[in-house]
Design a protein around this nucleic acid. Structure first.
Lengths: 189, 189
DNA sequence: GCCTGCATAGTCAGGGCTGACTATAGAAAG
DNA sequence: CTTTCTATAGTCAGCCCTGACTATGCAGGC
C-alpha cells in the first residue's frame, strides 16, 4: 500500500518514466521502501489500469530500447494519493520479524551458544544502525519532515539494540542454563 | 524463514496433523507469526518434499474429512531446525512499515490534519499495545524466554509510541505550518 | 430416521513480489 | 567502420501467501 503512495508521491510533481523512478527509489534506499524493478513496473501498470496514471510511449529520444514509457498522474491519482497518505499515517501494522519465535525455542540451544548468537545479532544491528545513519546524512538539513522520518528509522533500530542488551543482561542475571546437552539435536524429554 | 522454524519447532516434541498445527498457531497469535491455513499447508508440503517432515494419512478416527494428514519431523528436520534457529537469531531485517514514506509526503496535507492523523495513529497503537499485553498475560509465569519474547513485542510498540509523541511535540515546537491550502489537491508549485 | 448447524480438514485461483533474463543506444577502442 | 562494453529499459517464470471455497463427520432437535 505504501508503495503505491510512494509512486504517486514521486509522480505528483511531474511525469517520469519507469527507469527514472527506479533510480530515485534505489537512491533513497533507506527512507523509501525498497522496491525491485519488476515490482515497480507491476505497480505502475496496475495504477495505470485503475486510471490513477496515464502512460505514453515516448519514442527513443535518448536512452535505451527505443521507447520509454512515461507515466503521468491523473486527477484520480491525486485523490488516491491523499487517501493513501491518510490511510498509511493512521494505521499501524506491527510485524514480527521472527526473532520472537526463535527466542521461544531458544531452550533448544546450549546457553553459551545462545548468548554468543545474540551478541552477534547485536553487532549486526549496530552495524546496520551506523550504515543507516551514514546514508541519512544530516536529516535536519532537509527539513523537519525528513528529520522525523529519520528519527523513526533510527529509533526502531535503537529499540532492537536496547532489547538485545536487556535480554543478555537478564539471561545472565537469572543464571539461565539453556538446553540440556542432549536436547540440542536429541529427542524430546 | 521463521515460519518454517516455527513449524519444525512445534513438531519437534511430537507429530501433529495439519489442523492441530493451525489451531496452535492461531492461539498464540501474538507470539508466533500469523500464518493463514493455506500458507501452513503449503509450507508443510514443502517441508515434506524436502525431506524434513514425513506425512502419513491417518484414516478417519474422528474429526472430519475421513483423513487427517499427520506430520512427523525427521532427523534432517531436526538439523534444519537448529540451523534456522541460529540463522533467525543472528540476522536482522528491519522493515519499514511505510509511515516513513507518508511522513516525507506530509507536506501535502494541512498541518492541522496531519497532527490529528498522527494523534489517531497514537490512539491506534496504544490500543494495540493494550491488546497485546492482555493477550500475553503474565509472561514471567511462562519462564524467562517467554518474558524476553514478550519484552521484544512490547518494546517495539513502545518505540513507535514514543516516536509519535516526540514527533507531535517537535512539529508543534518548530511551528510547522504544513501545506499551502492549494497544495492539498492542487498542482505542483 | 432425517434435517440443520457446527467444528473439523484441506484445496484452489489468483495477487504481490523477486531474481534472472532480454534488448537497445551510444561510447570507447582498434 | 566495426567490435565491444556499459548504462538504460523493460519482461518473465515462478515463489510465497491469502481469501474464499469445498467437503466430511457428529450433535441435537423434531
Amino acid at each position: 500500500m505504501h508503495k503505491e503512495l510512494m509512486l504517486l508521491g514521486l509522480l505528483r510533481p511531474g511525469s517520469l518514466y519507469g527507469y527514472e523512478l527506479h533510480r530515485i527509489v534505489q537512491a533513497h534506499g533507506e527512507l523509501y521502501s525498497d522496491m525491485k524493478k519488476a515490482n515497480l513496473y507491476y505497480l505502475l501498470d496496475r495504477l495505470a489500469g485503475s486510471g490513477h496514471l496515464t502512460v505514453q510511449a515516448e519514442p527513443g529520444t535518448r536512452g535505451a530500447r527505443g521507447e520509454r514509457l512515461v507515466y503521468t498522474i491523473t486527477a484520480a491519482g491525486r485523490e488516491r494519493f491523499a487517501e493513501l497518505l491518510r490511510e498509511v499515517l493512521r494505521s499501524y501494522e506491527p510485524d514480527h520479524n521472527g526473532v520472537d519465535v526463535a527466542v521461544i525455542f531458544l531452550s533448544h540451544l546450549p546457553a553459551s551458544e545462545a548468548v554468543s548468537l545474540l551478541a552477534e545479532r547485536q553487532r549486526t544491528v549496530a552495524e546496520r544502525r551506523a550504515q543507516v545513519a551514514a546514508e541519512l546524512g544530516d536529516p535536519a538539513a532537509h527539513g523537519p519532515l525528513r528529520q522525523i522520518a529519520a528519527d523513526h528509522l533510527l529509533s526502531q533500530i535503537d529499540a532492537e539494540l536496547n532489547w538485545i542488551e536487556r535480554s543478555l543482561a537478564f539471561l545472565h542475571e537469572v543464571g539461565w542454563t539453556g538446553a540440556a546437552k542432549e536436547d540440542v539435536n536429541g529427542q524430546p524429554a
